Computed example of a mutant assay.
Amino acid sequence: MDHLDDATRTELEAAAFRRLLRHLDEHKEVQNIDLMILADFCRNCLSKWLVSAAEERGEALDYEAAREYVYGMPYSEWKTHYQQEATPQQQAAFAARQAQKQEKAR
């Protein structure tokens, strides 16, 4: 992508991000804990990254507004309709992932 000008690259990155959000929206069965176990990020992380990017540019973006953008609805509504209780297996896999990250950090 080095041959692209900054504006075009930014437009492509933004389009890919919007596609990622649509994909996550189309797959609400994928729980945040599953994303955290497999990829070490979730929908909440995307929301935090948006807030951080806004702050870096001197813009104000409320975390709840960012979450509503990422989730496509208020987080409380998404949680009520789509979030499931983490299974013991998911909790164990998440704990193992966290331990693995801590070990790498040493």
Rank of each mutant, 00 (worst) to 15 (best):
A16L: 14
A14M: 14
T80G: 02
A15W: 14
A14C: 14
L61Y: 04
E77C: 04
K101E: 09
V30W: 03
A86N: 09
A65I: 10
M36E: 14
V30P: 00
Q91C: 10
W49F: 12
V51S: 11
D40C: 11
K104Q: 09
Q91P: 02
R19A: 07
A7K: 14
E11M: 05
R97G: 06
E77T: 07
W78I: 00
N44F: 01
L46S: 01
K28A: 07
K48L: 14
T87H: 15
W78A: 00
P74G: 04
R9T: 01
V30G: 01
A95S: 07
Q98D: 14
L61D: 04
A95K: 07
F41M: 08
Q84P: 08
A86H: 07
Q84Y: 10
T8P: 04
I33Q: 06
D25G: 08
S76Y: 00
T10L: 07
Y75Q: 03
G58S: 05
I33D: 08
Q91V: 03
E26R: 12
N32Y: 05
H81R: 08
F41T: 07
W49N: 08
E64W: 09
E55A: 11
K101N: 10
Y69C: 12
H3K: 14
I37C: 15
R19Q: 13
Y75E: 00
D2H: 15
A66Q: 02
Y75D: 00
L35S: 08
E13P: 06
L12I: 15
L50Q: 07
Q83H: 11
Q83K: 07
A53C: 09
D6P: 06
H81Q: 10
Y82E: 02
E59A: 07
Y82F: 08
N32V: 04
F41Q: 06
L46N: 01
Q102L: 12
C45Q: 03
V51A: 11
R19C: 12
A105M: 07
Q31A: 08
D5F: 10
P88M: 15
A99V: 09
F41C: 06
E59T: 04
K79Y: 04
A54E: 08
K101D: 05
A93S: 10
K104T: 12
Q100D: 03
A60M: 12
Y75L: 06
M36R: 06
Q100H: 02
A105E: 13
L61I: 14
N44E: 04
D6G: 07
K79R: 12
F94A: 03
Q89I: 03
C42A: 09
A7T: 15
D40T: 15
W49S: 12
K79C: 05
Q98M: 15
K28I: 01
E85V: 07
M36A: 13
V30C: 06
